[in-house]
């Protein structure tokens, strides 16, 4: 009966020659040449074939992670790295739990992340909606809006330093021209973190804009037409059609932006180095100081792992929250 199906017949004949994959799959035979199957065995061949990629992944992700865990359990410093560092178990974590500057850095990171996300997301969504409605304007303006995202963080940092300069900066020059008092953007302990947030919003908004604009394009027009037929206003259509369908994209965007912002370090290093008076000392900056400036590699590794846990927790939280909202 099998011969009634010409495809099967063809597959069998190709199988005999070690031919096309589809045919082998139909018979439950691995789609690889006979000599490979003979050399590695039918059952183990797939594992052997993915092994190089697994080894690569292990060497660039799993191994560094495990090594970082190992380093965090030692008192490894630049002064004992050649001699061998003593194993201290969880002492670095214990020390971290009793380190007031670490808690301070978490608070600063919270301000920085929340401020950046609120600004980036609101502006990004607004611009994405405008571009979605006005394709002509989008074609014209999109390349300009993307510029901050493609610039190097270091260049962005230096550009904002100049703009924020109290004496010679562009922003204060504008304020003076309007008869307003100049602001100590980077010299004021209260203002400095918000100055960084503004710079980061400027840099990150294009990413959110592009991401959400792409997601908006995937919403079928029929849904808006149906809503219109049902008498929905523009706001109602946005509230009941656009937002629910954007949720998966919003979740991914928020996860990415949160992690990037929490880990952001280069712009802060250039603009404030954590100052004034630790007012912009984020956790990423604190980790850098300990590991690379002070040469306390073990302690720095412990901070990194705690940051990783925080990132993972935030990602889970987003996924659960948005997942629940999508299903209800």
């Amino acid at each position: 009966m099998a011969h009634d199906n010409p495809a099967t017949t063809d597959a069998e004949s190709r199988n005999a020659r070690g031919g096309l994959p589809g045919a082998h799959a139909q018979r439950g035979v691995l789609p690889f040449p006979v000599f490979l199957r003979r050399a590695f065995g039918e059952r183990w061949l797939p594992y052997w074939l993915v092994l190089p990629m697994l080894a690569l992944l292990f060497s660039v992700t799993v191994f560094p992670f495990l090594w970082n865990v190992w380093v965090s359990l030692q008192d490894l410093r630049s002064t004992n790295i050649l001699r061998g560092a003593p194993f201290v178990g969880l002492r670095n974590y214990w020390q971290l739990l009793h380190d007031p500057l670490f808690y301070h850095s978490l608070k600063v990171s919270l301000y920085f992340v929340v401020g950046s996300i609120v600004g980036q997301f609101t502006l990004g969504l607004l611009i994405a909606l405008i571009f979605h409605r006005r394709p002509g304007a989008a074609r014209l303006l999109r390349p300009v809006f993307i510029v901050p995202w493609i610039l190097s963080a270091i260049i962005i940092g230096y550009s904002w330093i100049w703009m924020y300069d109290y004496n010679f900066g562009l922003i204060n020059a504008g304020l003076r021209a309007l008869g307003l008092p100049p602001v100590r953007w980077l010299n004021d302990v209260t203002m400095a973190i918000w100055a960084l947030v503004i710079a980061n919003i400027w840099r990150g908004t294009p990413f959110t804009m592009l991401f959400l604009e792409a997601a908006l394009k995937n919403i079928p027009d029929e849904l808006y037409e149906a809503a219109q037929v049902d008498g929905a206003t523009g706001w109602q259509a946005f509230r009941h059609v656009t937002l629910p369908l954007l949720r998966p994209a919003v979740a991914i965007n928020l996860i990415l932006v949160t992690m990037w912002t929490f880990n952001l370090f280069d712009t802060i290093l250039v603009m404030t180095q954590g100052g004034p008076a630790n007012a912009t000392l984020t956790t990423a900056m604190y980790m850098y100081n300990n590991a690379f400036k002070y040469g306390l590699f073990g302690y720095g590794a412990a901070i990194t792992l705690v940051m990783l846990l925080i990132n993972a927790a935030l990602a889970l939280l987003y996924l659960r929250t948005v997942g629940r909202a999508t299903t209800t």
Binding site: R77, S78, T79, N187, D188, V189, G275, P276, A277, N278, A279, N289, K293, Y294, G295
Partner: peptide
């Protein structure tokens, strides 16, 4: 000393606290 970067930072923080806070 090996800990100089940390010591200098601690002193700088004292200066910052006095000046900015």
């Amino acid at each position: 000393i090996p800990q100089w970067a940390q010591v200098a930072d601690a002193i700088f923080q004292a200066m910052s606290a006095a000046v900015f806070q």
